[in-house]
């Protein structure tokens, strides 16, 4: 809550107003509005098919909204898609190098080395991505999104498939970025992560934004506020709202 108050005065980095999006007949997002300031960590959580990925891909500029406005800093949005976007026949290093070049990073070598270091894949740099384990492929997928140092970082279920140690490293790194002023918007189904790091939370269900606040506030909003853990409180909250 302290963070949210701190950024309330400054002009938001991300501003979403009345956003709607449909895949044909299927409504994926319905009148979603929120803002996020510099250095803020915003977790977007919700059931499968809630519209989280759709929201992030619109913020990433992949899709155009049907209605509403989306404002992000021009050309400075990093993105880690939910499904690994990698060339399986290229090595770890070649993938990093290629996307570093495509994103116009000045010191390609330094950026690649830093990411190899961060993901702990320096010793696998010469291996083709297709031969890596699922979690290691996800590490490369994240590393590519982190290559450029954008003002806004969108992470779609980045921790899925990572081992606990690597998850801890990831969140450490992400918090470091946020501390440096990067606005980070991420989705996850690991609610423990959300609770632990005390982020601001946006709850999406069936394309609608049901909640915008801290984990503690969500706990209080849940019907059985005595619920032992955050995950139970969240499930109760959704059930009460008919999801």
């Amino acid at each position: 809550m302290a963070e949210a108050e701190a950024t309330a005065g400054a002009s938001p980095v991300i501003e979403v107003r009345g956003l709607s999006y449909s895949f044909g007949e299927r409504v994926a997002l319905r009148d979603v509005s929120f803002t996020a300031g510099a250095g803020e960590l915003l977790a977007v959580i919700g059931p499968n098919g809630a519209g989280k990925t759709t929201l992030l891909s619109i913020l990433a500029g992949i899709r155009k909204p049907d209605a509403g406005t989306v404002r992000t800093p021009a050309g400075a949005v990093g993105w880690v898609p939910q499904q690994a976007a990698l060339y399986r026949r290229l090595t770890v290093e070649e993938n990093l190098r290629l996307f570093a070049r495509l994103e116009g990073i000045e010191d390609v070598d330094a950026a690649v080395e830093e990411m190899l270091e961060q993901t702990g894949l320096a010793d696998r740099r010469g291996d083709q991505v297709g031969t890596l384990s699922g979690g290691n492929q996800q590490r490369v997928n994240i590393a590519i999104g982190l290559l450029s140092r954008p003002a806004v970082l969108l992470l779609d279920e980045p921790s899925t498939g990572l081992d606990p140690r690597q998850r801890a490293r990831l969140w450490e790194f992400v918090h470091g970025l946020a501390g440096g002023g990067t606005t980070v918007l991420y989705t996850t189904h690991h609610l423990g992560e959300v609770d632990r790091y005390g982020d601001r939370i946006l709850v999406l269900a069936d394309g609608e934004a049901l909640f915008d606040g801290t984990a503690a506030e969500l706990h209080r909003a849940a019907p059985e506020s005595g619920a032992a853990d955050f995950e139970s409180a969240f499930v109760a909250f959704l059930r009460e709202r008919g999801h």
């Binding site: 891909s57 993105w79 898609p81 690994a84 976007a85 990698l86 996307f99 495509l102 994103e103 590519i144």
Partner: peptide, 13 residues
């Protein structure tokens, strides 16, 4: 198929 398309379309190319 490799999903890389979504990254490329966002890059300057």
């Amino acid at each position: 198929e490799e999903n890389a398309f979504i990254r490329i379309t966002r890059a300057s190319v």
